[in-house]
Design a protein around this nucleic acid. Structure first.
Lengths: 201, 201, 201, 201
DNA sequence: AATGAATGAGGTTTCATTCAT
DNA sequence: TATGAATGAAACCTCATTCAT
């Protein structure tokens, strides 16, 4: 019943949302360049021309997908930190949230954590700017950790994010849970892997 | 005379090589889908139709680029291991070679270490197969290390390769050397980052 | 209250008039084919769909612009003849009025004195018919002049109107006044330009 | 036989020429904006895509049409002056050539003597520049005539050219010959039309 | 070994217009 | 009186590819 009510309430916004979802899905599956407006329109159940009532161009659609995706992942990751304390524990929580969103959260999350497509200046910088804003969460998390001297927090952050973001290339749903993967990544960095007796050569 | 000999000898090879180089460059810069045969031809100094003398189709060009790139990076990484001993030292040497090739070695290396383009079955599996063959080097390197019990070598390998392969998204030439980055990545994993006195929370 | 009355009285007329003006402006500046309903609507401060409340189609808008423009120029030219006598003086007065309207009177005048756009039958003939009606003023003015025998009044009229109507292609506001140009055109035809002593070769 | 030989000789250039001709024809008949590449291609007996082998864009086709048309009309008008003497006679010869070309010489001549279409900067200025170059012929012809003092050669030229260029709006083939019309235009300006006894009011 | 010329399919986008509200 | 949302058709143009030479 609540559902029925919601359906009627949603209707005005439905089409735009469907469109965005269809676009995100195609961008993720085939890449931006290989996603045609025709296919995206078909995925949203409308005519290609109708897209242009909602978005002025294909690249604007891309930007809108990124806006939505980054809004969502920011909410997910920041939300996972509420009430969590202990610097390593917080980092782990953020990584779990990030990786779970990316690997199991749906197309919007994946759409934003890819190598940015080859688009012209303004759109590209808007996308980069939004991503940097999100990644600032991790900058702050690493600042809070008491690392050994001369640890390079910058490279460390990119190492960790790279390891996570690359995972969509090999992750297969139904095998190891994203949470488990994230825990391992953090543990390996925190504890190190040199066996006490074997030396470091 | 030596020149004349070289000219005649090189020419046939040259054109094909130029073409492959131009293709790799476009694939890296704009992605496979956004790279047109026209632009690739222009980059190689020939007419679009002339490409088809050397390669039967665009996707074959892609496969050839991957063949060449993987041949090169295999040679680079395997070569860097010759005469090197100590399991962690060997891993470090391989990472240095891999990252240096990727970030400063030219377009062929970058062309192969990207998320694989959205192409049809046969080409895709050929590319995947070649990549797996290369990454087997790292499988073996990790087998040789005496890790703590219940270390997940599989996830560890993908973590390390992901961190490295993602680096092309943020690396800027002229700043930190790839070798330095690689050393850090390995050190962090080997030694861990939890400060002795601060605890692991 | 006067305001309220005015508002209610003007509004309906206003929007239609604004629309017509915006259409005339676009037709003049970009031509009929290159003027989009979207742009015209924007120029009139309304949505494209709203045009169709006032006019059933684009071509009807064109016809309406011509109706308004020809109404205005007929009024201007015929008005300029009231109380003027002397056949050459009357012709001159008409030419001054025509050229002043065309070059400085605003978009409606220019909209109607252009090569007629490539539209289908009915609209085209309606436009032609209205123009012929206007040009009849000049037919009558020339009938009243006592020309040398075998003067071709038909070609003469078209020569004079052609010279005037073409002027929008080279006229630049702020330089010579339209009135001055019109006087010259008439004077040259009336008095001729062969210098008395130089012969006519 | 000569014909057959010519046909085989012309072949390489044929397609481009046909294309230009078809474009000129459509531009003249429907205007630039209303001429579609599809229709032009059909007129030239090729596929729309094939146009782009010869010309990079629609606007380049327009410029090429103007280049060809202005080349032709310059040749026609300048050619008509060879061996002709007497300043008025020369002006008359030029007007006959101009008007004959325009009204009976085919689409290229008409294509260039129209109000220039609403195209972007570079193409527009190239077209204007070429036209000015052609009209310079008339500048020189008028300089050679010994007019009454204070005759405005500038306005006179534009009056004459306007009268001629406008004629395509009313000229119907098969009635009065262009040559006859041109003679009248020049005669009226040379001799004037005020009847000796009637006065100039 | 290369290319000039062409093409069918499909790309993104704009068009005039409709219609329920 | 106006418009938000949509659409079928068509716009210009690019695509990978072909083929005779």
């Amino acid at each position: 019943m609540a559902q029925a009510a919601q359906t009627t309430t949603d209707k005005p916004r439905n089409k735009r949302a469907q469109l965005l979802e269809a676009a995100a899905e195609h961008f993720v599956r085939h890449g931006y360049a290989a996603s045609s407006m025709r296919d995206i329109a078909a995925g949203a159940g409308m005519q290609p021309a109708s897209i242009y009532y909602h978005f002025p161009s294909k690249v604007d659609l891309l930007v809108a997908v990124h806006e939505e995706g980054l809004r969502r992942i920011t909410q997910a990751t920041a939300g996972a930190l509420i009430g969590v304390s202990g610097p390593w524990t917080r980092l782990e929580a953020a990584c779990i949230a990030h990786l779970t969103a990316l690997l199991e959260g749906g197309v919007f999350f994946q759409a934003v954590m890819r190598e940015p497509p080859d688009v012209a200046g303004e759109a590209r910088s808007r996308i980069t700017e939004m991503r940097d804003e999100y990644e600032a969460i991790f900058v702050r998390l690493l600042e809070d950790i008491d690392f050994p001297v001369d640890t390079d927090r910058h490279d460390l952050r990119l190492m960790l994010l790279g390891a996570m973001n690359w995972s969509f290339t090999w992750y297969r749903s139904g095998q190891e849970a994203p949470e488990s993967i994230a825990r391992k990544f953090v543990a390996y960095l925190r504890d190190g892997l040199a066996a006490p007796l074997s030396g470091r050569d």
